[in-house]
């Protein structure tokens, strides 16, 4: 599998570290339902069979965290951007 890093170009996936689903966002820790929200954030996953936005870290490259849109059935990658800011998309 090759990941088109916005900085480094298409590189083998073994240069990257995987974190998982990019959808969960860190909840407000001061909210009254923070315990439940954090449980969901840390543990619960949609685990879709199909396109999924996910976080990869180019550990052996530019050290940028990327948001990669990849189909979990075919491994086909359709979009990549820097995580967090969404810049550098391609």
């Amino acid at each position: 599998m090759r990941i088109p890093c916005p900085y480094c170009g298409a590189r083998s996936s073994h240069e990257f570290a995987y974190l998982g689903d990019a959808a969960p966002t860190r909840p407000d820790p001061s909210a009254p339902d923070a315990a439940e929200a954090f449980h969901s954030y840390v543990y619960e996953r949609d685990n879709p069979a199909g396109p999924m936005d996910e976080l990869w870290y180019h550990s052996a490259g530019c050290r940028r965290w990327l948001k990669v849109t990849r189909d979990t059935r075919t491994h086909a990658i359709t979009a990549v951007a820097f995580a967090g800011t969404g810049e550098g998309g391609r």
């Binding site: 870290y57 050290r63 940028r64 965290w65 820097f82 967090g84 800011t85």
Partner: peptide, 12 residues
Amino acid sequence: QHLEFCLQVLWP
């Protein structure tokens, strides 16, 4: 890697 995650993903 964790610190980069914090800076790039959680709190850019």
